[in-house]
Design a protein around this nucleic acid. Structure first.
Length: 270
DNA sequence: ATATGCACCTGTGTGC
DNA sequence: TGCACACAGGTGCATA
């Protein structure tokens, strides 16, 4: 579910509450396809102290003081929500993490696509190696230059490819393309230098505006306090099929690109 | 090398 | 009301 602004919101909140806290216990509740494997997972973590939580693309990287690294991906429906010691687990919870000072964190995941893995330095390195630049750190030029090849690729497909630029998902791909005035089906070869520049700029803007509002809750997403993100009301195309474009009143159209629902304004985007 | 399509899961909303 | 089907913030792999 979460894309860069949502994952970054969660990272900040985890970091704030978990830094310097020792993990006292881990309770595994449900085993999905990539569930942490039982006792080894628990033994690798219990008694360790959190140093910091980082984010790369949509991955959350938990670094412990002793060098242990835990990597998490929430995929479509994963959540990290703080609770208290009396919390009664519910159906879709996958693990409970109890820290010092009574801080408890619930990992839940309705569709069970997500994962949490303890990884060695080498494995982490290769996991991170393929990702493209972070859009909020990279320059416009660097981002624009990623959107040149392969020439026949549709621009939306390129935006969703994490090796091209990291952290963009279905919502922000559509939103950035609307802001840049580009149809999602345009081939990269049909983008001018100016088009790519506008798109890079649009990406940075939409991601940072959403981050400032703690992300978008289109459906399930909540932050670690269980609160929804506030950016939904500011979306211009995503989830607005049939509604009037906020810029020109043309009804927003929905098509399928790369098996993903894709929203655009037939007038503003060419 | 790139594109397509499906698979992984569960829940919800729509239309007949 | 019931049922079948499409669709959902993501990605990885098998096949074309």
């Amino acid at each position: 579910m979460p894309e860069l602004p949502e994952v970054e919101t969660i990272r900040r909140q985890l970091n704030e509450r978990l830094c310097g806290r020792e993990l006292i216990s881990v309770t595994l509740l449900r085993s999905g396809r990539e569930a942490p494997r039982g006792r080894r997972f628990v033994a690798a973590l219990v008694g360790k102290t959190i140093q910091k939580i980082e984010r790369r693309a949509k991955l959350l990287i938990w670094r412990f003081v002793d060098g242990t690294v835990l990597v998490a991906h929430l995929k479509m429906t994963g959540r990290f929500v703080f609770s208290n010691k009396n919390y009664a687990p519910s159906r879709h919870d996958r693990a409970l993490f109890e820290f010092t000072s009574g801080v408890c964190l619930v990992w839940s995941d309705v569709r069970q696509f997500g994962f949490m893995h303890v990884v060695k330095a080498k494995a982490l390195e290769s996991l991170l190696a393929a990702y493209g630049p972070e859009p909020l750190s990279a320059s416009n030029e660097e981002l624009a230059d990623r959107l040149i090849t392969p020439k026949t690729r549709r621009v939306k497909v390129a935006l969703l490819d994490q090796t091209v630029i990291a952290g963009i998902g279905n919502i922000y791909a559509d939103e950035a393309l609307h802001r840049a005035g580009l149809r999602p089906t345009r081939r990269l070869s049909a983008l001018s230098r100016a088009d790519r520049g506008r798109l890079a700029q649009a990406l940075k803007q939409v991601l940072s505006e959403s981050l400032a509002r703690h992300g978008t809750s289109a459906k399930d997403y909540v932050d670690t306090r269980g609160e929804r993100g506030g950016f939904l009301d500011f979306l211009r195309v995503y989830g607005r099929a049939g509604a009037a474009c906020r810029a020109c009143v043309t009804p927003i159209k929905k098509i399928v690109v790369a098996q993903r629902g894709t929203h655009f304004c037939p007038t503003c985007q060419t």
